[in-house]
Design a protein around this nucleic acid. Sequence first.
DNA 1: TTTTGGTTTACGGTTTACCGTAAGGATATC
DNA 2: GATATCCTTACGGTAAACCGTAAACCAAAA
Lengths: 221, 221
Amino acid sequence: MFHKVLVSDDLGSINQGVLTVLDSMSIKKVQQVQYCDDAYLRIKKAILDDAPYDLLITDLSFVADYREQQFASGEELVIALKKEHPELKIIVYSVEDRLQRVRSLMGTHNTNAYVCKGRRGLIELGKAIKAVSNDEIYVSPQVEQALSEKTNLEIDDFDIELVKLLSNGLSQDEISAHLKSNNITPSSLSSIEKRLNKLRIQFKANNAIHLIAIVKDLGLI
Amino acid sequence: MFHKVLVSDDLGSINQGVLTVLDSMSIKKVQQVQYCDDAYLRIKKAILDDAPYDLLITDLSFVADYREQQFASGEELVIALKKEHPELKIIVYSVEDRLQRVRSLMGTHNTNAYVCKGRRGLIELGKAIKAVSNDEIYVSPQVEQALSEKTNLEIDDFDIELVKLLSNGLSQDEISAHLKSNNITPSSLSSIEKRLNKLRIQFKANNAIHLIAIVKDLGLI
DNA sequence: TTTTGGTTTACGGTTTACCGTAAGGATATC
DNA sequence: GATATCCTTACGGTAAACCGTAAACCAAAA
């Protein structure tokens, strides 16, 4: 079981529940922070002091305030930490239940567990901690399909960029010009049309307006 | 100060924080529920028993599960309760910070306070409870403008319906047909164009796609 | 009743989106 | 080196959105 745990979550009230869970598992050394940057610095310092944390439990969304932050979201924090210290176990504990996010964190960035805050969130968090301490991964039932499903969401960054530009009010012509001026390829009007057509089919959208409404609802942009 | 309080929030962990606040204010009779329907029934029963609650603190978003619910959201619960029992004080405590929602709840439905969950959420909740117990209203600073601003949102239900239909993928032609078949007037293609043009100007949108993206971000649909 | 202001509807013209087809180019496979 | 495959680009036709103008309609004010 873990000995030294860091909890990162900007809502003080939720932290209380997490601390209770950790306490019930007899984990004594628990610290908490409310900013991603603080989490990063603490973990770095602990490594230098030769007393590293063996588990980080972090939220994803942190409300921005007056403090300038290097890491704007828990996602960025997780990605950076897993890159620099792959041995550090990380459990994400978030209200966010969008599959795309789970897929990215668990699949690409090797997060060890993903727990959805919710009615049974704390129970699941307990399970996650046990699983991760046994070198297993854990994801909440409601987002489990994110991993099993081989949903070929072959939507790449270019597609996302495209719909973002669209939702910002640019015409397909303007998007083409924008891509050309930024030396991004493909940039022809025809290619843009093709991509959008593919996306419309993929999301079963009747037209571009419908497409934007759908991807906004899905939280892709 | 209040004597009998009901807390409604589907995230058990957050409730703990709320209970702490209430406890620190020496409010002893505190019950909590995790479903809107339970909140409604409890309040009704308490009135019948001649021991009514004098404050309800409720979240807005409740994740749906296997239980069939009459009230799908805290918003519906608040509207129903305020209609049937205007004397019951209600504090909304939600992560939702869209002005339109605050405006609706506070302006139209006479909610007594609106507190945003966040880093200072519990502090503000304390202030809100004090204010409401003095027959004042309270809203979190970050959404205060929702009330002060006399934003001439001369957007009527027809406009909202229009953008909803648009975002559902209907063409202007189809919208016209839909309105005609439902005997809603105006229904001509020309009128639809005019309305949408007005909305585009109002929201500074370049085109229909942009408009939908904007109103979705504003939470109007 | 007439006037006036507003809304709804109709219509024509321009721009943009949508869709299929096909040519050009790069890379991989045999 | 020839062939296949995938992606990018080009083009043309149709549909839809966009935009201005004007007529028709309605209701309140004169």
